[in-house]
Structures are given as C-alpha cells and as structure tokens.
Amino acid sequence: MSVEEFQPRIIGFLCNWCSYAGADMAGTSRMTYPSNVRIIRLPCSGRVNPMIIFKAFQQGADGVMVSGCHPGDCHYVDGNYYARRRLAMLEPFLEYLGIEKGRFQLEWVSASEGKKWSQVVARFTDTVKSLGPRGKI
C-alpha cells in the first residue's frame, strides 16, 4: 500500500442474521478483502433509517453500504422488503443531490455467502476508490 493511495472511508450497515453472519463467515473462511469497510451491526436492514445515511454522507463518508438477508429470507419476515423500497428511493435521490452513483449500495448477502461478502466489499471499495474522496458537507 503506497502512502498516497486514497483509502476511502466506507460504512456498512449490516443485518445481524444474514449479512453480519456472512461477513463472519468470510472471516472463518480466512478470505481476504480490502479493509476499508467499517461494519455497523443492526438487527435488520429494515432498521436502516435513511436519515442515518444522509448523516453519514454529510459527515464525509466516501461510501455507504446496506446489506441484508435476501428477499424472502428476512429473520423478521418482511423487514428487508420494506428496506428495499425505502432504499430504492434513497439511491436515486442521493444521486440527484450530486452524490455519484456507486457511493451508495444495497446488497443481499446471506449467512453462508462469505465469499460473496468479500467480493461485494472488494467491488464496492474499488468503485468508491475510483470516485475519489468526498469530504464533509
């Protein structure tokens, strides 16, 4: 890692039952992936209040990811379906505010998809890296 290379600051909001466990799985399987994502553990992707995402971007996060159980697999029956609607509206709105497409991402990662988690992080980190630093508003 060169000293000059831009290291984006990425926040990941993960549901406890699927994606957080999937990220654990990546760990138990010793998969390596970029270290930029900091995970905030939540019970459900449906717990993600868009206000928190606004706040993260306002505070200068370079990227924000929300990851939950695959549709149909929610531990709380329907939580991710509501999350999907809400965040599907947030994404174009953020873009409309000038926050480039790719800085916000909604993903579905199951508890068994450690591999997918590592790939999702690698891809997302790459994307955010290519978009460059954002800074605080």
């Binding site: 549709p71 149909g72 999907r84 609607r85 599907a88 991402q105 909604l106 993903e107």
Partner: peptide
C-alpha cells in the same frame, strides 16, 4: 410487493 425492484441498486 415481493416481486419488485428485483436487482438491488
């Protein structure tokens, strides 16, 4: 609806 917005973001 379950069958909507199939591909997340």
């Amino acid at each position: 609806k379950k069958e909507e917005l199939a591909e997340p973001s």
